[in-house]
Amino acid sequence: MPNAFEFCLPTTAKAVPDGADWLHEIKYDGYRLRVERNGKSVRLLTRNGHNWTDRYPWIVQAALKNREQHFVIDGEAVVLGVDGVSDFNALHSRKHDEEVQLYAFDILMLGGEDLRPLPLWMRKTNLARLLRGRPEGMFVAPFELGEIGPDLFRAACRMGLEGIVSKRHDRRYIAGRTQEWIKVKNRTHPAMSRVEESFR
């Protein structure tokens, strides 16, 4: 298994792109996480390189139950409320670690093959195939294509969600900050106040 995986990081923007080359995902409020399975071993790694394998057992169990022995998934660790919306306070409290699931939105490696050079839409197809049947503990991020982006963002704001992430569906997975992933946040969401606090 390649060991040089790095996260692709979205660039913050004020407007959602509306071109045909983009796809759009709801931004869940959680912790970015990479799930690496190598045979009977699973590691959960954060953006800062912390190993959280022991923190989220449900995600580990879901990874081990998969028939595929070798894969690397990019996603977000989340706690879902009864309304299906991610609850960051519950996640942050550490009182619900047993309930934390993976909101999976990309796959970097499958069966020993590095998928990062493939366009996003092909990686999405591989991810959906790997996680078909929605195994408990992991679920595939739904997405919408094309010009619907701005409408989807307005709907997300009305629902009190954190925002959306828009991605070029024809591009490879790029390590580090990129303009090919665009993050637009709901200015009224509690996550915005957390960001502002961190700069004080």
Rank of each mutant, 00 (worst) to 15 (best):
L64R: 12
G149I: 04
R171W: 01
L80W: 09
S193E: 13
L80V: 03
D114M: 06
L115F: 06
V85A: 13
V195F: 03
F199R: 14
L110P: 07
R177G: 11
N66V: 15
E25N: 04
V35E: 01
D83V: 10
E136S: 14
P10D: 04
Q69F: 08
W52R: 11
Y28L: 04
N186A: 00
R32A: 01
L45G: 01
L102S: 00
H92P: 15
G111F: 10
G30R: 02
P117A: 08
K167E: 09
V78Y: 00
M122C: 08
E113F: 08
L80C: 05
E197M: 04
L120K: 13
A90H: 06
A156E: 05
E68T: 14
L152F: 12
A175V: 04
A63F: 07
R200D: 11
V85Q: 06
R129P: 01
L118I: 05
N186P: 03
R158D: 13
N38F: 13
H96A: 06
K183N: 10
M159Q: 13
E144S: 11
N51E: 11
I182Q: 13
H24P: 09
R129I: 00
A155H: 02
L44E: 00
D151G: 11
K95N: 06
A141R: 00
R132A: 14
V42K: 09
H24I: 07
N51M: 10
Y173H: 15
A4N: 13
M138D: 15
E99G: 03
Q179R: 15
L9Q: 09
G19I: 03
K95G: 02
R154H: 09
G149C: 06
G39W: 11
D29P: 00
G137Y: 07
C157Q: 12
L80F: 15
Q61A: 15
M192H: 07
A155S: 04
G19Q: 12
A191T: 01
H24F: 10
R34F: 03
R123S: 04
Y103V: 04
L44G: 01
D74P: 00
G137H: 06
R34S: 07
D83C: 03
K27I: 11
N126E: 11
N48V: 04
G111L: 11
E76M: 01
K167H: 10
F199H: 12
H70F: 13
F153E: 06
H70Q: 14
L91W: 04
N89I: 08
D18R: 14
R187F: 10
L152D: 09
L33G: 03
V16A: 10
F105P: 08
H189N: 00
P117N: 06
P150D: 15
I148G: 08
D29V: 01
I73D: 00
F105M: 09
L108N: 14
F7W: 11
E144M: 14
L115D: 10
F153C: 12
E6W: 07
G160C: 00
R132S: 13
P142R: 02
T12W: 05
E6N: 08
Y28H: 12
Y173P: 03
E68Y: 08
N89D: 14
D151V: 15
D114H: 11
H92K: 15
A15Y: 14
G163R: 02
G163F: 04
A128Q: 06
K167V: 05
I174N: 05
